[in-house]
Write a protein that binds this DNA or RNA. Sequence first.
DNA 1: ACATCGATAAACAATG
DNA 2: GCATTGTTTATCGATG
Length: 386
Amino acid sequence: MEASSDTIPSHTATLAGSQPLYSPQTSSNGHVLLPLSPLSFPPSPSSLSPTTLESTQSSPLSNSFSHCSDEHNAHCHSSAYSSDQDDLTCLSWLHQRGSNLLPLQPLPKISLLSKQPETPRALSAESLSPTLNKPPYSFSSLIFMAIEDSPNKLLPVKGIYEWIVNSFPYYGTAAGGWRNSVRHNLSLSKSFRRIQRDKSQSVGKGSLWCVCPEYRAALLEVLKKTHHYHSTNSNLLSVPGLLEGADYGTSMVCDSVDISDSLSHSLLLSAPSSHILTSDNPTLFENSSGALTPDHEELVTMESVEEEEDEEEEEEEGGGEMEKDPLSNSGYIELHYYQCHQYQYLVLPGEAELDLESVEILQLDAEAQEAAGSLLDLAGGWHQCL
DNA sequence: ACATCGATAAACAATG
DNA sequence: GCATTGTTTATCGATG
């Protein structure tokens, strides 16, 4: 089905920001590149509304670097920064989580979808969200999220407290013992490092804390598992067949979701932390025919992506320990997201034919995914939308 | 039964 | 002196 020139709903245009809503482009190998709305970097609670989303720009690390003086501090910071810029294993899905980080534990922040009360999914999430339940996350995960959600990837203890309280109202009313637990965790866990503040500039007491790069992947994995576990156990997502969807690596599967008449396939939804672009291959697009920027939307070849995938396949074959993708050659459509600058792109297979409605749904659901931080939520939304 | 992990409490020192 | 921060030890329950 061809993309029509239908009028674009205003709310969708708002979500898409200044980026053209629908400007699918085809890469040299036939992949469809679908620009999504700009992501907010650095993330902050104030950047969660659609209006501020447009004006939010990526900013270079500024003053925080001046706070660290020793060698490993610099390593900590640079790693965090670079990975955030080009690493889809970053927690960008947390940054715009809005009130739907977890169906069990809403956040008081405004989500993109919460602006659209007509969205069934948003209503479902709201109605199923007790406010003061204890979050299922361990203190390590909470600290990790707090630090990752900070603009410069480092926070003082007080900042961690505040993030937790702001994000999880439970802790606003809970007894103070949890603060002790946070400090205990910071001290005990190897995942976090204490950084001396620059005494000449520091305001406030204590040190700053950052995530050790070498433990970041593990923390992220734990976080995903926790998130996934509780997402799949929520009523919201109890779509028949959905919970049986395989979850391998960073991808999740929902079955039997048609996105257009010409696409009767099921969908394989690839997480934002897709294997296409990871911290291991940050130079992915540097090898392409040109840098992809939101301004001129120049296309990049996807050869490097294929090479990467080929390498992975070889690794899997060679290693023999990695699980083979059970859905390869199964007719599933794999959707990859990648991020360039402040934009997130959705890469569709070249054979994917989308009508405008499907594109809108994809864009909205990608936004929802970012806002909700849940791929299964996205899948459930598709079920409801179609 | 055992080890591990996470949560919690408490004591204590260092710091602003 | 006080509150906050950081470290350490101990205990308990859940889990594999």
